[in-house]
């Protein structure tokens, strides 16, 4: 984080309602020390986050799924190997989730699917946040024509429903994992850019930014050290929620046949295939669907928890 001299919570707030006496460590009982006892913003946020049961549940879910995605593929069977005698078999000891319509191990496919979902989610959010911060910062810092051009572009993008915009990008770029990542990143940076721009417009007027400018600190340094830390909290929330949204969007695109293509194990694609056998082999649909729901749910809950803990307004 930044080393700027911005006090995160003012001592005058402390003897009030939020800090009860049992919060202070022992040996800090005399008045002066109690006033000086300042919990860092990060500790404070973590305390609020950890009290939120749903958020902790989400965090556990996310960590579990990350482990599954990282380690799982080394432990399971080949997700592409076909066993010609057992199509659509129900779960047993050999195939924990059964096999799919081509006799492939569904457990392995779901594990690989989760890994792909997480990979796409993280890559999309990384790109999206980078584009969003860059353009938002440019608009907010430069102002004038740069600002109005970027805002116009955002307006145009926002005027097109999300999935339709994604279709357009897919049509231009092609299909497959890389195309999905680029498409989703290019269609979802708008919120980040707007948040960053709003933060910049506000922060530009702060005295310490003015002071930094007056003493001749170069612009990139002011942006990086003094303004960006101000907008980092809403961005953290957007990152958590964005991964969940990207996982959902990837599933939707793959489901409609314009996203990830066979034989790559993608959860959306598995559901799309499974619908044909739903009445005879419902497990083909239920396991991938459950994997998507848990992944998205985990990230959304963490995002919601962070929003409350960091006190970010929507």
């Amino acid at each position: 984080m930044s080393d700027s001299q911005k006090p995160h919570s003012r001592p005058s707030e402390i003897p009030g309602s939020r800090f009860r006496s049992e919060d202070a460590p022992s040996g800090m009982s005399d008045g002066l020390n109690e006033v000086l006892f300042v919990r860092s913003f990060r500790q404070d946020s973590w305390r609020r986050f950890s009290k939120n049961k749903l958020a902790i549940f989400g965090l556990v879910l996310v960590i579990f799924l990350l482990l599954v995605g990282l380690i799982g593929p080394f432990l399971v069977q080949d997700p592409l190997a076909q066993e010609r005698l057992i199509f659509k078999s129900t779960p047993d000891a050999q195939h924990w989730f059964g096999t799919d319509n081509l006799g492939r191990d569904l457990f392995a496919r779901v594990i690989y699917g989760i890994r792909l979902s997480l990979l796409i989610g993280c890559a999309v959010v990384f790109l999206e946040t980078t584009i969003g911060i860059a353009l938002g910062a440019l608009a907010g810092w430069k102002g004038r024509h740069t600002d109005s051009i970027i805002m116009r572009i955002i307006d145009v993008f926002l005027g097109i429903p999300y999935l339709i915009l994604a279709f357009a990008f897919i049509a231009a770029i092609g299909e497959g994992v890389g195309a999905v990542i680029i498409t989703l990143a290019f269609t979802s940076w708008l919120t980040t850019a707007r948040v960053v721009r709003a933060g910049f417009l506000q922060a530009k007027q702060y005295d310490y930014v003015e002071a930094a400018r007056a003493v001749g600190v170069p612009a990139p340094r002011i942006i990086w050290r003094h303004i960006l830390p101000n907008v980092i909290q809403p961005i953290i929330v957007l990152v958590a929620v964005g991964i969940g949204a990207a996982v959902l969007a990837e599933a939707a695109l793959s489901f409609l046949g314009v996203g990830v293509q066979e034989p790559t194990p993608s959860l959306g694609l598995m559901i799309s295939t499974a619908q044909n056998f739903f009445s005879t082999a419902p497990h083909l649909l239920i396991f991938p669907a459950l994997a998507i729901v848990l992944t998205v749910l985990g990230f959304l809950l963490v995002g919601d928890g962070l929003r409350d803990a960091l006190d970010v307004k929507e």
Binding site: A251, A289, V293
Partner: peptide, 22 residues
């Protein structure tokens, strides 16, 4: 709210089809 926002629309559709149709 938390649960429904995590379920893809098409999965919800299939589940309802399965319950009320089949």
């Amino acid at each position: 709210a938390a649960l429904l926002s995590a379920i893809p629309v098409f999965v919800l559709g299939y589940l309802l089809q399965q319950v009320f149709g089949v």
